[in-house]
Nucleic acid binder design. Structure first.
Length: 139
DNA sequence: GCCAACGTTGGC
DNA sequence: GCCAACGTTGGC
């Protein structure tokens, strides 16, 4: 079981839309580091959903619902890129803001803080659990 | 809206 | 292979 965080602008694809749809292909990643992280995902991994820009908060927990990464259908002529299927697992009772995350000494090393532009990043189980606690949410 | 960070592109 | 120019992302 691995733990991840993905970033999305709520204006482009919000957590609420995701919940309504029930499942989505996480396509459009065009950065090698983020792509490499997608390739490490497997079925059942937990993925925190972060709203960037206007919101700047973790708002929900998703789960990987494909066995692994598959070719990204939005780049049919370019085999470099992959995607995974994600399904909503649970909405956080309270969103966890970037400010809250930055204020946590145990979270100052996560990529969300150190590498602002990375859109798919790994979390340790401990980091994942701390964010859930801040969100007053149990798995 | 601005700007820092950073990834990519292309000329040499 | 280097590096300047440029484009994009995202926090503030």
């Amino acid at each position: 079981m691995k733990y991840w965080l993905v970033k999305q602008e709520p204006e482009a694809y919000s957590w609420d839309t995701f919940v309504q749809e029930g499942e989505t292909l996480w396509t459009g990643v065009r950065n090698y580091q983020a792509r490499n992280n997608l390739q490490e995902m497997s079925y059942g991994d937990f993925v925190l959903f972060y709203h960037s820009q206007s919101d700047k908060a973790v708002v929900g927990i998703a789960q990987v619902s494909s066995e692994q990464a598959i070719p990204d259908p939005t780049s049919p002529n370019d085999t470099r890129w992959v995607c995974v299927k994600l399904s909503p697992y649970k909405t956080l009772s309270k969103p966890v803001t970037l400010a809250q995350i930055k204020a946590q000494p145990e979270l100052t090393n996560i990529a969300l803080v150190r590498q602002a532009r990375l859109s798919v990043m790994p979390l340790t189980e401990q980091e994942f659990q701390i964010i859930l606690q801040l969100g007053e949410t149990m798995l």
